[in-house]
């Protein structure tokens, strides 16, 4: 076996060590690679930018801490953008472990703009079953959700006086989406216009509420189809989208910091793939 053929059998431990170094070093010593803002992220930013002071949006934390590195930065960035426009936020949680992530993201963004819990934002916590509570909240949010994550009833949360139903009072849905359940529920029950009157929809709910989705990288391929077809109004794609959003609001943070590591990590994987193929072609030629 010559040196070229050996590239086909690199010890997995070497791959792991190279990966650790290639990811850790740029986090410790930033390389500051330039980040170009994509059309998708700019589009999502523009959609959020259309909100007016006093509007109320729902931000759904449909992820758990495992997806935090990709979805926490856009959550904070979008919340900052909304608060900068005096938009109020209702934190919702499609995933049981997402409640604390949403609370932390909104607290961090609120601190920058002097926003107050209960007046400018609240966190609902985890409400099951998702589909049924969303359907009910379309016409009666107070009846469907009743209280926030701390058990404080809506009577004692001043901003909820202006939010009686999704149908009348919600101006946008923003979903931090790591899978299912998540954006799908909002698309099905809120984002899709329906003219069917009924107990859950007495007047024939015809208004389409914009849905902006920030998704993890593995979801991008499916999310692109939803964006192109207009199901999603805006898309913040993956960790890179979060970094781009941070740049758009002039508040670079952890999302931008992670992009150097993503670059070098991807480069390391590509180099190993190339080396493996060199070894494969060399062994085929000698055989």
């Amino acid at each position: 076996m010559n040196i070229w053929e050996r590239f086909q059998h690199i010890d997995v431990r070497i791959i792991y060590v190279v990966l650790v170094v290639s990811i850790a070093l740029p986090l410790l010593f930033p390389l500051n690679f330039p980040i170009e803002v994509s059309k998708e992220t700019k589009g999502a930013y523009d959609v959020v930018d259309t909100l007016e002071p006093g509007d109320i949006i729902i931000m759904d934390s449909a992820y758990n801490p495992g997806s935090g590195p990709e979805l926490y930065p856009p959550a904070v960035a979008i919340a900052r953008h909304a608060f900068s426009k005096d938009v109020r936020i209702i934190g919702f949680n499609s995933w049981e472990l997402g409640a604390q992530m949403m609370q932390r993201a909104l607290d961090a963004a609120a601190a920058d703009y002097g926003k107050e819990y209960g007046v400018d934002y609240i966190v609902l916590g985890y409400k099951r079953p998702l589909a049924a509570t969303i359907r009910a909240a379309i016409n009666d949010a107070w009846g469907a959700w009743k209280a926030d994550i701390n058990g404080t009833t809506f009577d004692n949360l001043p901003m909820m006086a202006d939010f009686r139903s999704i149908k009348e009072d919600c101006h946008m849905i923003v979903v931090m989406n790591a899978g299912s359940p998540g954006a799908g529920n909002w698309v099905t029950y809120v984002g899709t216009p329906s003219q069917n009157p009924g107990p859950n929809n007495p007047d024939g709910f015809v208004r389409t509420i914009p849905i902006v989705v920030a998704c993890v990288s593995v979801e991008i391929s499916g999310a692109k189809a939803s964006l192109q077809s207009g199901v999603y109004t805006g898309l913040v794609p993956g960790g890179r989208g979060g970094a781009e959003y941070e740049l758009l609001i002039n508040h670079p943070a952890t999302g931008v910091g992670a992009m150097d590591a993503q670059s070098t990590g991807h480069l390391a994987i590509i180099l190993f793939i190339i080396l493996g193929n060199i070894g494969y072609l060399a062994s085929r030629r000698s055989a």
Partner: peptide, 9 residues
Amino acid sequence: MLTTAPLGA
């Protein structure tokens, strides 16, 4: 992969 990382450009 290179597209999703700034290094690609």
